[in-house]
Design a protein around this nucleic acid. Sequence first.
DNA 1: CCTGCGAATGTTATAATGTTTCAAATATCG
DNA 2: CGATATTTGAAACATTATAACATTCGCAGG
Lengths: 163, 163
Amino acid sequence: MSTRALPYRPHNHDACVQQALASARAICQQHKARLTPTRERVLELIWQSHKPLGAYDVLAELTSEGHSAAPPTVYRALDFLQQYGLVHRIASLNAFTGCTYAGEQHTGMFLICRACGNVLELRGIEVSTAIHNAAGTEAFHPETITLEVSGLCPGCKTEAPHE
Amino acid sequence: MSTRALPYRPHNHDACVQQALASARAICQQHKARLTPTRERVLELIWQSHKPLGAYDVLAELTSEGHSAAPPTVYRALDFLQQYGLVHRIASLNAFTGCTYAGEQHTGMFLICRACGNVLELRGIEVSTAIHNAAGTEAFHPETITLEVSGLCPGCKTEAPHE
DNA sequence: CCTGCGAATGTTATAATGTTTCAAATATCG
DNA sequence: CGATATTTGAAACATTATAACATTCGCAGG
Ligand SMILES: [Zn+2]
Ligand SMILES: [Zn+2]
Ligand SMILES: [Zn+2]
Ligand SMILES: [Zn+2]
């Protein structure tokens, strides 16, 4: 269903974005949710950037396009997109990124390069299982998992191998 | 070395706190780091609460004690405490909690009850291994892992089993 | 076509969280 | 003591997020 974005490697990003938008439209239709122009534009802006985008980055882009927008405009769109699993919030960055596996059941695991800022989302089924097992030993009932790994991507690691 | 706090169960919390402070003093001495009165008081305040404390919560407490404090006072103390592994920042809450395993090498995994607000820190070695394995398949070099699980603790789960 | 209703948006203000900057005080060591 | 580095005080500022209320829009029923 979803074409997996090649991690940290060059690819036709326009096609990438267009596919994400098409997928989003389908998902919203399924749920009878309205992917309005503002919501769709916010999703597109987020997808166009490989790096997570802050809410105010999105806002700046919208206003630069002549859209009369205020913080609530963006946050409301982001809430909607999160609700339908189209974007994820990266808590450690206060930023948002497009979901690579929209429509598929998954626990998002994010590899965040501290050098280039790119983010790769993995499904991480084994990780998810291990987390649920660990929580189970404490009789804890998990609902949402925040898993963000900061470090160096392959490219940046070879560029700057010496700390 | 460290006495594991009994998860979500009653215990002598004063002793809990005193032990954490003693441990912190030892760790700082080892590293020739200065656990100044303000830093120690911030650590104590954070430990006294089982729930993660926001920076401004700490600040309010300090000022209520007559301490002339401003935001940087607290953030500097928190930076110091994080640097020496004495507290963790919970990114999904914008709050801070005392480290249960200070001085021990570990990847913090936090079980956060959305009902009562209590937080339990687990070491989660299997989880850590799974994360590193997953990152390895992408040739990613992990440095810091943010792993926060929100859900219901055993107590709150039985109280409100029906969503 | 109107009309009413709920969803979505516009607008303003404000809250909550975190940082920069520079000066003053304090500890540490020779 | 005097030089040096660390820590703290203080004020302003920056960033991120929400509250409150008015207005508009999409759509179904009459
Ligand atoms: Zn996802
Ligand atoms: Zn990189
Ligand atoms: Zn810890
Ligand atoms: Zn609970």
